[in-house]
Design a protein around this nucleic acid. Structure first.
Lengths: 150, 150
DNA sequence: GGTATTTAAGACTATTTTAGTCCGAATATA
DNA sequence: TATATTCGGACTAAAATAGTCTTAAATACC
């Protein structure tokens, strides 16, 4: 449907949450679920994918939980989404040769290629560190707006 | 899944086919289906959507068939796709306010907004007339390549 | 060692979407 | 009237989506 699924959305929320935590902080499914408004049992699935994809480190047992596996500035939006949704292709014809009807003769193929490239540029251009910084800036500016109103 | 469905793909094929026909030519479901490799009964559904959306004119009965309802240079790729898939939104948060988790405080929202804008620019930047022209150019250049080989 | 805590893995489910097919009705031509 | 052709909708099978739930495994602490 040319639309991000809940999996992708929830993965992004979870990784941003982890990225925003202070160094060394270990987060529980429960915390993330409540804070980011993601169903707990569903989130547990998402976290597993993120762990296997190497974005997140997990530890079981008491004092266990999740942390980022790498620094937030090395994790892009694209990587986070693809960790749970699989590789993004705006059209099947981009997956590999032969998927495309009339292969190299299709005039629409280059258009999808360009659209794909632009989308990837946007999703790769934002790291989790960027997003945490953006979130802080938004919070500050909205606080200022509140004060002005009061 | 962040991927165009068959509906969208088939709609584009059908409209390009109509755009490539000589002035006044009326095309049958059957022709389009064979030429563009789209299942006939499925295509019939697609054509109905395109007709209702005002991109295509239909006439029933003997000597009936389909033509473009407007000139090919006024029909964009975006319009064609949205005629059968409904409006494109890369993320639910773009549909309307309130769909977004933590509304204006979400740092990812602006990123989706930008991605959406870029995608739309690409899909609106190509009209069916452009695509027909591109197809002709591709055909010519591939013919030249064949001749060089032979 | 035992107990409490926490993630891992996978089975299970309901709903929606996707990708079609099929048929009878309506409409136009000749 | 016979023939051609789209229209509209019912129908279907398979896959994706969006979850839930239960049991097992690992870890920490007493």
């Amino acid at each position: 449907m040319l639309q991000l699924t809940r999996d992708g959305e929830y993965a992004v929320r979870a990784v941003i949450f982890l990225a925003a935590q202070p160094e060394g902080k270990v987060s529980l499914i429960n915390e993330i679920s409540v804070e980011q408004e993601v169903p707990k049992s569903y989130l547990s699935k998402i976290m597993q994918h993120l762990t296997r994809a190497g974005l997140v480190k997990s530890r079981r047992g008491a004092k266990g939980g999740f942390t980022l596996a790498r620094t937030a500035d090395t994790i892009t939006l694209r990587e986070t989404i693809e960790a749970v949704e699989g590789p993004i292709f705006l059209n099947v014809c981009l997956i590999k040769k032969g998927e495309c009807h009339r292969d190299d003769l299709c005039p629409v193929h280059p258009v999808w290629k360009e659209a794909q490239k632009k989308l990837m540029e946007v999703l790769e251009g934002k790291t989790m560190a960027d997003l945490v910084k953006d979130a802080e800036a938004i919070k500050k500016s909205s606080k200022r707006a509140m004060l002005r109103k009061a």
